[in-house]
Design a protein around this nucleic acid. Structure first.
Lengths: 341, 341
DNA sequence: CTGAAAGCGCTTACAG
DNA sequence: CTGAAAGCGCTTACAG
C-alpha cells in the first residue's frame, strides 16, 4: 500500500504539499498538483480513511439504525426501499453510510450511541423505534443529531421526524368504508406502542365520531402487525360479531391475514365484507381481490430523512417535522354495503 | 469525549496499562483492570475506532457490495433478506459490516476496490455481478479475499462462490412441465450475461434434450428480468405461436408479467397454459393461481457467504463453492396438457 | 505485572 | 506557493 510518504519521496515535494495537492487545496500550484496526482496514480495510492478521520475529525459518516428488523416480514419489504432512498441521498451528498441493525436480542450488548461515537458518526437516522423504547432517551443525551422515521411528534419535544400523516390517512381509510355505507367496521391494529399504531387508531376513532358512528371497543383488536395473528383475530371477530361488514387493518400484511380468514369463513370480499389495508406493499395490488389501501413511499421516507440530516449538519436549524404525502388506492376490496342495519 | 489519557490521569496507571486493561489482556492484574474499567465507565469512555484501526491494523470490517440494485424491483425483495443473512453472521462473528451500493451511474466514480482499501476492509461479499463485469477483474488484482453470490464457477478459475444449482433447478422446472405432458414450452430468460440466466438457460435445454424434445429457438426470449418486458414478450410469443402450452420464466417477476399477458390474451392459467417461475418471492404464493416455482433462500445465501468470508480470514483455505439447496414448489399454475400434439 | 516511548498515516496551523 | 513539525487517539514491541 502506497502512502503519502512514498509520493513525497517519488516527487521530491513535502508531505504537506502532497496532502494538499491530493485534497485539491488552493494554495498549491497546478503544475505541482499534476506531478503529485500522476505519481499517486502510478503508485496506485489510496488514502487511509482511518488516518484521515483520526486527524481531521471530518469524517462524513451518517448512521442508519434499524431497530428490530425481524419484526418486518419479507413480504412487507419496506426497509429495502427505505435503505435505497437513504443511500441515494447519501451518495449524492458525499456522505458515507454506516448501517447498524439492532436485533432484538443483542439490544443490551452495545448501544447504538456507542456505535455512533466509536466511529465518530456525525448524524443518525433511526427507523423502527417505538415510543416506549429506551433508545429515544439515549439519543437525547447524546450530542449526535438525528432524525426519526415514523415517530410521533407528541411528547417528544421537538425532534426531527419524517413521517406521513397517519391520523389523516387512517381517517380517510375509515371514511372510505363509511362512504360505502358500512356502519359496523372492525379495526385491526398493529400494537399499542408503535407510533403509527397509535396514530392510525386515532384516525379510525375520528372518522367514526365525525360520522356519528359509535365506537365499539369489541370491534377493535391488536394483531402485532402479524399476518397470522390478524388471521386468528379476524376469525374470532366474525364468529362473535356477524354484524360486521368491513375491516380496516393498520397494515397490508394484516389485511392479507384478514382476507384469508374471511375466505375460510366463506365470506366473500368485497361482496360480504369490505377490507382496507395500509402501506400499499407490492402484494396489495396482486392479491385477488386487489386490496384497497393507503399508499406511502418508503423510498421517499429514507431519502427525505437523509436530506434532512445532511442539511442539519450543514447549518444548525430548528427541529423539523417532514410530512410526506399518502394516497388512498381504491382497488377491489371495498364495495357498497347492502345489508340493512 | 473521554480518552485513554483521561483514564490514565484519573487512575494513575500508565497509558499502556489502561489500553491493555480495556482490551482485557492477560498481563494486567484483575485488581488493576477493575479500577480502570470503573474509571472508564465513570468517564463514559468510548474508544475511537479510527485510532484503534489505524494503529492496530486489525479492523474487522467486511464489505457487502451490492451491484446495480435498481435492477431489482421492490416486488422481488431478495436483497433485503440477503442483507439480514449477512448481518446476522457478521454480528455473531464480531465483524463489522460496510455497505457499498454501486448505482449504475456512479460506477465510474469510485471503484469498490478503492472503497475497500480506503477503509482497510478485510474481505468482501459481492452480489449482482455479471460475468462480463469489469469488477471481477478488479477483484482478482486486489489482495482482498472475497466471495461472490450467484456467480458461475466456469471460467472464473476458482473463486469463492455461494449459489444454488441453477442448472439443475431450471432442469427440474422444465421437466415438471414436460411431466405434465407439455411439449411446446417457451422459455423467458432474464438476460445473456447474468450467470443465473446462463445457467437456467442450460437447464432448460438439458431437460428438453433429455426428453427428446426439440429446442425451438423461436420459443426462447429475453426479458431482462423485467415484469413489463415479460408481459410484452409473452403477448408476442403467443400471438405467433398459439401451439405453446407452457412457459418457464427465469424469475417470478417475469412470470407475473407472463401471467398478466396470458390473462389479457384470454388464456387461462393453468387450464390453457401452464407457467413456472423461479425464486419463490413472497408474491408467488399470493398470486391467483398460486405460482409453481423454484424456491431458494436469499437469507441463507447472505448468511453462508458471510460465514465463508469469515472462515477465509481466519484460516486461508482453498477456494470454495457452496451450493445451497433449492426446491420446486408445486402450486396451482401448472396443469396436465390435454391438447393433442 | 507495569511503564516510557515509538509510531500507525494522515492533516493543519505556522512560518517563510 | 512550499515545507518542517506537531499531533489526532490509540496499540505494541521492549525493557524492567
Amino acid at each position: 500500500m502506497a502512502k503519502i510518504d512514498d509520493i513525497m519521496k517519488m516527487t521530491g515535494f513535502s508531505r504537506t504539499a502532497v496532502s494538499k495537492a491530493l485534497n485539491d487545496k488552493d494554495d498549491i500550484s497546478e503544475a505541482t498538483k499534476k506531478i503529485i496526482r500522476d505519481a499517486a496514480r502510478e503508485l496506485n495510492y489510496i488514502p487511509n480513511i482511518n488516518a484521515r478521520n483520526l486527524r481531521s475529525k471530518n469524517n462524513n459518516v451518517i448512521a442508519l439504525i434499524i431497530s428490530s428488523p425481524s419484526a418486518e416480514s419479507e413480504k412487507t419489504n419496506t426497509l429495502y426501499p427505505l435503505l435505497m432512498g437513504v443511500n441515494k441521498a447519501m451518495a449524492a451528498q458525499q456522505y458515507e453510510l454506516a448501517l447498524y441493525i439492532i436485533d432484538s436480542k443483542d439490544q443490551a450488548a452495545k448501544s447504538y450511541v456507542a456505535f455512533c461515537r466509536e466511529r465518530n458518526v456525525k448524524g443518525a437516522i433511526l427507523v423502527g423505534i417505538k415510543t416506549d423504547d429506551d433508545y429515544i432517551k439515549q439519543l437525547k443525551n447524546s450530542e449526535i443529531p438525528y432524525v426519526l422515521i415514523d415517530v410521533d411528534i407528541r411528547g417528544t419535544d421537538h425532534m426531527n421526524v419524517v413521517k406521513i400523516d397517519d391520523v389523516t390517512a387512517a381517517f380517510e381509510a375509515t371514511e372510505h368504508l363509511i362512504d360505502h355505507n358500512h356502519k359496523n367496521i372492525a379495526f385491526i391494529n398493529g400494537g399499542k406502542t408503535a407510533t403509527v399504531a397509535i396514530d392510525r387508531w386515532e384516525g379510525y376513532q375520528k372518522a367514526l365520531a365525525e360520522h356519528g358512528l359509535p365506537l365499539q371497543h369489541d370491534y377493535v383488536k391488536i394483531a402485532d402487525f402479524s399476518e397470522e395473528k390478524a388471521y386468528a383475530v379476524t376469525k374470532a371477530l366474525f364468529k362473535q360479531h356477524p354484524e360486521l361488514t368491513a375491516v380496516f387493518c393498520a397494515s397490508d400484511l394484516m389485511a392479507l391475514g384478514t382476507m384469508k380468514a374471511l375466505d375460510d369463513l366463506e365470506l366473500d370480499v368485497p361482496r360480504d365484507v369490505s377490507v382496507v389495508g395500509f402501506d400499499d406493499i407490492p402484494l396489495a395490488s396482486y392479491v385477488k381481490p386487489a386490496l384497497t389501501t393507503i399508499n406511502q413511499s418508503f423510498f421517499e421516507k429514507g431519502n427525505k430523512a437523509a436530506d434532512l440530516i445532511a442539511s442539519l449538519l450543514k447549518e444548525s436549524q430548528d427541529k423539523k417535522i417532514i410530512t410526506l404525502p399518502h394516497k388512498l388506492m381504491r382497488r377491489n376490496s371495498v364495495a357498497h354495503n347492502k345489508r340493512s342495519a
